[in-house]
């Protein structure tokens, strides 16, 4: 079962994702897709680690190729976040369209887990026309979000910490 959580920057998506898995009693895995690069990302990683501490998550740092992940049956997975994963898959040696690869890896993670919570990001609502590769990133992110939302059971938009159910239900 997939729950997709979206929203703007720093709107409480991670807290909500963790809260959803609070009541899960099996093994819980946290897939961290943010590459530790530069002070701000290190600070973000530290903040998220502190948030998760004591909540029973085992962290898997995986920046690309999530279809290589192996976990025990009946586990819960929290994937955070699509924005970093999309950038990591897209901007390597050359710029590639990551949509199919990412959708396939989401379907794979869904197939091997009991429940999958995905944190993504809203991009493309600031009206700014960026450089072509950034516009391509925004386009790919939204395509991934649209496709994932289509087969996800639940889609929740976070608005300043308030969860707004866009599809399915919010189950704690």
């Amino acid at each position: 079962m997939i729950t997709l959580i979206t929203g703007g920057s720093k709107c409480g998506k991670s807290s909500l994702a963790e809260k959803i898995l609070d009541g899960f009693f099996g093994k819980k895995y946290y897939i961290a897709t943010m590459r530790p690069y530069g002070r701000e990302s290190l600070e973000a990683i530290e903040r998220h680690r502190n948030m998760r501490s004591g909540k029973g998550f085992e962290t898997i740092e995986k920046y690309t190729g999530l279809d290589e992940i192996v976990i025990p049956e009946n586990s819960a997975v929290l994937l955070e976040c699509m924005g970093n994963l999309c950038a990591n898959e897209m901007f390597g040696d050359k710029i590639v369209n990551p949509v199919k690869k990412i959708i396939d890896s989401i379907r794979y993670l869904d197939s091997i887990s009991e429940t999958l919570v995905i944190v993504t990001n809203e991009t493309g609502a600031d009206g700014i026309e960026y450089a072509p590769e950034t516009m391509a990133y925004i386009s790919h992110m939204n395509e991934i979000n649209c496709i994932t939302a289509d087969f996800a059971e639940n889609v929740i938009e976070c608005v300043y910490g308030i969860p707004v159910v866009r599809k399915g239900a919010l189950c704690y």
Binding site: E122, T123, G124, A125, I138, S139, M141, N142, E143, N145, C146
Partner: peptide
Amino acid sequence: ITGGAYSG
């Protein structure tokens, strides 16, 4: 009909 860019 409104929403962000590429939102469907």
